[in-house]
């Protein structure tokens, strides 16, 4: 395959995959929502879960974006340093976003700041947003596509605590964000928490946390314990779907972490709404690909 053809093929695959994830939820999210629906006993909450179920069925059947807010498109790349199109990926993903916007169709969600005009293509300065991790010696790329809707982006918050506030301060921060702003962000939420050294490192990790599967656990035992305690504690609040009260509040809490300065604890929260539209795809060096997030994916 020549280079030009490979670029065209990958652009086409990424364009179709980007549009696809707006129409069908990833397998782990669908399963979790099914579990929560079955456990629910409150009248209004059950009513809402039933609307959610009907909506996903209709979106699949009519091949339409399941939520009208198809978000700002973000790509999180875990790229092998030897992936043949490493240098072309940025342009490929810009083209893929524009393509998905036409074919999806996706709502026009890129407003050029200061100019204050909607570009109408979902592309603009640094948008789609790209986040890179480079893997030495590898020749494939794994791409997480995320549709960052307005409602679930609004609760996002980062701060830097003093060490005296400890992990207790982290737990309080998470609870404050969810009870004040999470209620409007379409619960049951997937809550991402970054525990790190500064505001921006914690913020990035909190977003990476909601790209992890719903029921996954942090490899460190203390962090995993904290994930479980926060999940159970937030569920005990009983926000229910849409904040109308119910048996649960969240699909889960995922923590990502880094080492920190001895004088700081950076903490951040990112939330994913129940319609958590993300997809993971691995592209090999020969441009063959495998969709990891959605069972039964068809182009």
């Amino acid at each position: 395959m020549n280079r030009e053809q490979a670029v065209a093929d990958l652009t086409n695959v990424m364009s179709k995959f980007t549009a696809y994830i707006g129409k069908r939820l990833p397998t782990d999210v669908t399963q979790k929502l099914g579990d929560l629906r079955e456990k629910e006993v409150n009248f209004l909450a059950k009513e809402v879960y039933e609307s959610m179920r009907q909506n996903q069925e209709a979106a699949d059947k009519l091949d339409r974006p399941s939520c009208q807010d198809t978000g700002v498109i973000q790509y999180f790349l875990t790229a092998g340093a030897n992936f043949p199109l490493l240098g072309e990926l940025e342009e490929i993903l810009q083209e893929a976003t524009a393509g998905a916007t036409r074919e999806g169709p996706l709502r026009h969600n890129a407003v050029e700041t200061f100019v204050e005009k909607n570009t109408g293509t979902n592309t603009g300065s640094k948008i789609p947003w790209l986040d890179w991790d480079i893997v030495p010696g590898d020749d494939s790329v794994t791409i997480d596509v995320y549709m960052a809707g307005g409602g679930c982006t609004l609760p996002g918050k980062a701060t830097v605590l003093m060490p005296g506030q400890g992990y207790e301060g982290v737990a309080e921060f998470v609870f404050d964000v969810i009870t004040s702003r999470g209620v409007n962000a379409c619960p049951p939420l997937l809550v991402g928490v970054g525990v790190s050294t500064s505001a921006e490192t914690a913020a990035r990790l909190s977003k990476k946390a909601i790209l992890r599967p719903v029921d996954s656990r942090h490899p460190n035992d203390n962090a995993a314990l904290m994930e479980q305690l926060l999940t159970d504690g937030l569920n005990e609040l009983g926000l229910g779907p849409q904040g109308l009260t119910g048996n649960n509040s969240v699909m889960g809490v995922n923590i990502e972490s880094s080492a920190r300065h001895p004088s700081t604890i950076g903490v951040a929260v990112s939330t994913g709404c129940w319609a958590h539209r993300r997809g993971r795809i691995r592209i090999n060096a020969d441009m063959s690909y495998e969709v990891i997030s959605h069972q039964g994916f068809k182009l």
Binding site: V48, S51, M52, Q54, N55, A58, A59, L62, R64, P65, S66, C67, Q68, D69, G151, C186, P241, Q242, L244, C273, W274, A275
Partner: peptide, 13 residues
Amino acid sequence: AIFPGGCAVLAAT
């Protein structure tokens, strides 16, 4: 009144 968030295709129908 609240219409269930995210249920946009249901609403479109």
